[in-house]
Computed example of a mutant assay.
Amino acid sequence: MTLGDYYSNEQIKQFAETVLGETDENRTESIEKVRKWIQKNPKLHAKTDDNSILAFLRGCKFNLEITQQKITNFYTMKTERPEWFQDRDPTLPTIKELANIGVFIPLKKYHDNKLVVIIRTAAHDPKKHKQDDVFKAGKMILDVAIKENFENATIYGISAIFDMKNISLGHARQLPPHVIKKAVFAWQNYYCRPKQLEFVNAPLYINVVLNIFKSFMSEKLQGRVRVHFSGVDSLHEVISKDILPVEYGGNDGSTQELIEYWSQKLDDHKDWFKEDEEYKADLSD
C-alpha cells in the first residue's frame, strides 16, 4: 500500500502514528489479526473489509483487546436496537422528514481536522416524532458522513455541537435515563471517536440533564463536555466561524444547503444501508 491508500498527506500520516500508534506495519498486522478473530467468531457477523476494521482500530488506538470488545459491543447493539438499526431505508417518510428538518447536520469543513456535526435536539416535534426515529435518522446520516470523510472522522474524530434551542418539556420527556444510557453507550461504542461535545443555546437547567448523561459516560468523555449559555457566541472561541453555517454565526453557507446535501446523500446510499443491515450479531443460543 502507498501513502495515498491510507492518508492524503504526510501530516495526517504523522498524526496517526504519533497519536494513534498507527504505522504501515502494525496497521496491516492488526487488521489481519482482527479479521482472523472475527472469522473465529462467526456469530458476530461483523464486517471484515479493511476499512471497517481499521475504523475500530483507530478509535481504540490499535489496542487489540479494546478493539475486539468495541466490535462485539457494536454488532451486538445493532441486534439489540432494532428501533435504530432495522429498516434503515432513506425513502421511508419518517426518515425523509427527519432528515429534511435537519435533526443531524454534518458540516462541509473540518475543525482541527475533525468532522463536525450539528445535532439539533429540538428540531423535531415530540408529539409527532419518536426519539428512537430521531436517533435512527441521525445514525444513518452519521454513517454516510463517516464514509464520505473516512480519513478525518476515523483519525481525528468527531466534534459534536448539540443545539438545544427551543428544547421543551416534551423533548425532555423523550429522554428518560434508560434512553440516555442507550444513547451514551452508542456514542462510546461507535466506530468513530467523539472528541468534543459542545452544548449550545443551553437552558439554565441543562446541568440537571447533563448530570444524567455524564453518569453513563466514561471519565474521558465527561471531560469533553462543554456548555455554552446565551446563544452561540462562546462557541466561536472553540470552533471557527469559518466552518459554521450562518445560523450559528458563521459564514459557510446555510443549514438548508447542508440539509439538502445530506438528504440526497442518504438516498444515494439506499443500497448500502440494505447491505449494511445484514451485519449484526446472532444472539440466539
Rank of each mutant, 00 (worst) to 15 (best):
Y156H: 03
I146F: 10
G138I: 15
G21R: 10
L221H: 15
P82F: 15
M217N: 00
K182H: 05
T18W: 09
N73S: 08
K214I: 05
Q222F: 02
K182C: 02
N9D: 05
T2P: 12
I167G: 00
I206E: 00
D233L: 13
Q174L: 07
K270I: 13
I12M: 12
R27C: 07
K108Q: 03
N100V: 09
D132A: 10
I12S: 05
N149K: 04
R58P: 00
Q39N: 00
S52L: 09
F199K: 01
Y7F: 11
Y75D: 03
T2N: 11
I167P: 05
H171F: 09
R120L: 04
E83G: 02
K165M: 15
V134H: 09
K33C: 00
G223E: 08
S218Y: 15
V246A: 00
H171E: 06
A122L: 04
N26T: 06
E275N: 14
L57K: 08
Y156V: 02
V116I: 14
L235M: 09
Y248E: 10
M77D: 08
R193A: 03
A153S: 00
L64E: 07
V200A: 00
T255I: 12
L20S: 03
R81K: 10
I206W: 04
E17G: 05
S52C: 12
Y110W: 12
D5W: 15
T154Y: 11
N166M: 11
K127T: 02
G231L: 14
G250S: 14
K127I: 03
I118V: 05
L169W: 14
A172N: 05
Q11L: 15
S52N: 14
A137S: 02
K109W: 11
P90F: 11
R193H: 10
G249F: 13
L210M: 15
A172V: 07
N211A: 06
L266I: 14
A122I: 10
